[in-house]
Computed example of a mutant assay.
Amino acid sequence: MDTRPIRFEFQCLEGAEELKFVHNIPSGLVNPEALAAQRDGRYRSQFLTAIRPILKEHEAACRAASKGFCENCGQPSVGVLQTPMSWLHNAEDPFVAVLVNPVCGKRECESQMRENIEDMIAEATAEIQGQGASRPSAHVGNMSCRICGKTEGIMKCARCKSVAYCGKEHQRADWKVHKTSCVSNDGGGR
C-alpha cells in the first residue's frame, strides 16, 4: 500500500504545548476531495482505521499535556477525548489536527465535551465551505453556561474564551474550579 508522511497536531488545552508528530497514512486519504469524501462511509472507515493506532500511541502524551483536570468540571481527569479533524484536503499542507480534551470519567462531562466539540467542528466546517478557509476557527459556537446550562445571553470567559456563563454570578461561583485551567489566548496564565 502506498503511504505518505502526514503531520499530526495534537492540540491540548489552550496555552499548553502542542504535540506534533509525523506518521505515514495511505496516500488515497490525502487528496483535494478529502473534505467531500468524509461523507462517504468507506472513506471515513479507512480514515479511522488508519489513525486509530496513531491516536492510541500518543494518548499517554496527551494525558500528560492536559494538566490532569477535566475540561468540563475541573475535577481530576481519568482520560482524554481525542477528536481528529482531517485537513487532508489542503493540497499545500495536508495534516490531521487532533483536539485533546481531558475528562473526569463522569458521563455528563464526557457528553458535554462531545457536544461542545461537535458544535466547534460544525462551525469550522461551515466556515471552510462558506469562505474557503484553510484552517479551523478558534471560535466555538453554541456554548452553554458551565453552571446552569443556559444557552441564551451567554458570555465567554474574557481571558481564555473556552468556557461560558450566563452572568457574573455563575462566573464567580465557578472561578475556584475554572482558574486551574484558565489561560489567556496569548499563552499567559495566572
Rank of each mutant, 00 (worst) to 15 (best):
G68D: 01
H139L: 07
G149Y: 04
R4I: 13
P94I: 11
V140S: 04
V22Y: 10
L19M: 14
Q11D: 06
I51G: 02
E108C: 10
A133I: 09
F47M: 11
S162K: 02
G15P: 05
A37H: 04
V80D: 00
G28C: 09
E169Y: 03
H139Q: 04
Q171C: 01
P84S: 09
I6T: 10
N142E: 08
V22R: 12
S134W: 06
V98E: 02
G141P: 06
T180W: 00
K150Y: 02
V163E: 01
Q129E: 09
R146P: 00
A173W: 01
V100T: 03
V80Y: 00
V177M: 02
R52M: 12
E71N: 13
E57S: 12
P102I: 00
C70G: 07
G132K: 13
A61F: 08
G105T: 04
T151E: 06
G105A: 06
W87F: 14
V96K: 03
K67F: 03
C70Q: 03
I121Y: 02
H23V: 08
S86L: 03
Q82K: 11
P32G: 13
P102V: 01
R159I: 04
K168S: 09
A64V: 07
T3D: 05
K168A: 11
S134T: 15
G153I: 09
P76K: 07
L35R: 15
C70L: 12
T151H: 08
Q129C: 04
K56E: 11
E110K: 11
M120H: 07
G28F: 09
P76R: 05
R159H: 06
C12L: 00
I6E: 04
N142S: 11
N90W: 04
A97S: 14
